[in-house]
């Protein structure tokens, strides 16, 4: 598997990746969660991490962001090694993170939540553009952040990281627990973000949703990336994926 992995990790074998993760291991306290994750994401791609619960998908995002305990391996973003950086410096390098639990702040209004992440580079969406994407956020500007519905909170969690000028977005299960119509709206949003040149690494359990937005899929098992499937090969790889995901 390791040899096959190298090819899978750098699928096109050409061009430099925007994000290069090599042999990433991570711990939460004493427990060893990631056992050597390797993956590549090129500029402008939407890539998903698929896998069962506990496979290490969320931890991979958190480790890229510097939010786990000890980490080893290499994480190069736009050619720069970030494994030793603090989370705030990783964010300032141009990576934005939207956590699974959405992380809406109860003591902040919707507007304050939206304006919270500091601008790190030019080129982010304007507040008007975010309001065009998610009109509900404008209507509820003055409400307490956590008074929003689940779908609105997800929109707020995504919306607020679009402002900052970050070029790589890490989204952790944006479709989780949402009504189908809202999942659809989030899918539309992700495709629009791709058109605007954002690069997205998406953790998903919802395989159907993932295939509507992604260019490639990495499959994780036991804290490792075990396979990579391009979206156009998906139909041909169904049996393999079903086995991995147990769906």
């Amino acid at each position: 598997m390791p040899e096959g992995m190298t090819a899978a990790a750098n699928p096109a074998g050409q061009g430099t990746a925007m994000l290069e993760v090599r042999d990433l291991e991570a711990w939460y306290g004493e427990s060893h969660v990631l056992h050597g994750v390797s993956l590549d994401i090129r500029q402008g791609e939407v890539v998903t991490l698929l896998g069962r619960n506990g496979a290490g998908k969320t931890t991979t995002l958190r480790a890229i962001m510097g939010l786990t305990g000890r980490r080893t391996g290499a994480i190069r973003f736009e050619g720069r090694e970030t494994i030793a950086l603090r989370p705030d410096l990783i964010a300032r390098a141009g990576i934005a993170y939207c956590p699974e639990e959405r992380g809406i702040f109860a003591s902040l209004t919707v507007k304050e939540n939206l304006m919270l992440p500091p601008t790190i580079a030019p080129g982010g969406l304007s507040v008007e553009e975010i309001h065009t994407l998610f009109p509900n956020l404008k209507e509820r500007e003055g409400s307490q952040g956590t008074k929003l519905s689940g779908g609105e909170q997800q929109m707020l969690a995504i919306g607020r990281i679009l402002r900052t000028g970050a070029r790589l977005l890490l989204l952790d299960e944006p479709s989780e627990g949402l009504a189908p119509v809202i999942v659809q709206q989030i899918g539309v949003t992700i495709r629009k973000l791709k058109e605007r040149g954002f690069t997205v690494l998406l953790v998903e359990q919802n395989f159907r949703f993932a295939q509507t937005v992604a260019d490639r899929h990495y499959v994780m098992e036991h804290g490792r990336v075990v396979d990579m499937v391009a979206n156009q090969d998906l139909a041909a790889s169904m049996d393999r994926l079903h086995e991995y995901l147990g769906v």
Partner: peptide, 25 residues
């Protein structure tokens, strides 16, 4: 104020605020 919103947010979830690029320490 804006500074206050960082404070309130960091009171709730310091890690996430730091992951947004704020030097929480």
């Amino acid at each position: 104020t804006k500074v206050g919103s960082y404070l309130r947010a960091a009171t709730e979830r310091p890690q996430l605020v730091q992951a947004f690029g704020v030097n929480v320490p």
